[in-house]
């Protein structure tokens, strides 16, 4: 939110330099005052807590407090990296995210374009509402449904049996887990995530389409040559934000769905941290993993931003 305030103000000032800044401050003092709460928010909730990140380098005990706990250097980092499961956790985390980006990221874009092409307003609104709904179902309920449907006597296996197949327990098959995870993720969030693209579609000037139609372009041509290029800036920003979460898989969903038979593909960094950090109260270890994740995420965001800037001339910064 604050981002939009700053550039507009500097545009008014029309340049750089100390004197100008001072003049600008005086001239637009009320606009700058509006910035204060946001700056405070970042200071209090984002800068100040960073001093606590040091517990990653200490043997933190809540009762001794941050300053009372002993320094242990990189012990927790090396514990994590030398863990028997480190490679697998990293692989699973990145792969689930990668699949989600490959299959889950384009889904709301396609969805938005399809909805946009629907002519009948009532039908359009009905479709939109129905596709939003899964977003509002609690994760616990979604996972309960999944567990039920995917059991060897569940709906899906009943259908397989009806067509002469052999029922299998999907949640005990490591090969099926990523599909289940990403598929249910798409089902749940596709409609909701399409909102931002729908909003972007509305802002495409209709003259462009009219001109294309006069030139004899068909529907597919319009989508390919007008709609998608106009969506690119939105897509790029969404992609950069999505890539920033590449080291994060929601622990809740994993914990509700996994079991030891599918740890091979389902155990991710966050579920490992839950078992080790929260249940065993190893806060320092958890902080070390969090810090590691943040560094990787930051590197990913920076590089994707650069890449997008090169390829499409639009980027986050």
């Amino acid at each position: 939110m604050s981002d939009s305030v700053v550039p507009s103000v500097s545009k008014h000032a029309g340049g750089r330099g100390g004197g100008r800044l001072l003049r600008d401050l005086r001239k637009n003092k009320f606009i700058y005052m509006m910035l204060i709460p946001i700056a405070l928010y970042y200071l209090v909730f984002h800068y100040y807590p960073m001093y606590g990140a040091q517990i990653a380098f200490r043997d933190f005990s809540p009762l001794k407090g941050i300053w009372g706990s002993a320094w242990v250097g990189f012990k927790h980092f090396s514990d994590f990296f030398s863990s028997y499961y480190f490679y697998r956790l990293l692989r699973n985390t990145v792969l689930i995210n990668l699949y989600d980006i490959i299959f889950g990221f384009p889904a709301p874009i396609i969805m938005a374009i399809l909805i946009n092409e629907i002519g009948h307003p009532l039908f359009k609104r009905t479709v939109q509402t129905i596709t939003y709904l899964p977003h509002f179902i609690s994760l616990v309920v979604v996972c309960g449904l999944l567990t039920d449907f995917l059991a060897s006597d569940g709906v899906i296996n009943n259908a397989i049996e009806f067509f002469g197949g052999k029922p299998t327990s999907f949640l005990m098959n490591p090969e099926a887990f990523r599909t289940i995870y990403v598929g249910s993720e798409i089902w749940q969030s596709m409609g909701w995530n399409s909102i931002v693209y729908l909003a972007a579609l509305v802002s495409i000037p209709s003259e462009l389409y009219e001109a294309a139609r006069i030139d004899g372009a068909g529907k597919m041509r319009e989508i390919w040559s007008i709609t998608i290029p106009c969506l690119i800036p939105t897509i790029v920003i969404m992609l950069i934000m999505r890539v920033g979460k590449i080291m994060t898989v929601g622990a809740e969903k994993i914990i509700l769905l996994y079991n030891p038979s599918i740890y091979e593909t389902a155990d991710v960094i966050s579920s490992f941290v839950y078992r080790k950090g929260v249940l065993e109260a190893s806060f320092s270890f958890t902080a070390a993993v969090g810090l590691f994740n943040s560094i990787i995420s930051f590197a990913m965001v920076a590089s994707v931003n650069k890449l997008c800037n090169k390829l499409t001339q639009s980027s986050l910064w």
Binding site: P49, G52, I66, W67, S294, F298
Partner: peptide
Amino acid sequence: GFISAVSFPLCLLIAAACSSGQSL
């Protein structure tokens, strides 16, 4: 960009950590 990338995943952890700092 740096702040939001680094601090969002951490802030939960640290919220717990900093309030406990007072217990000293």
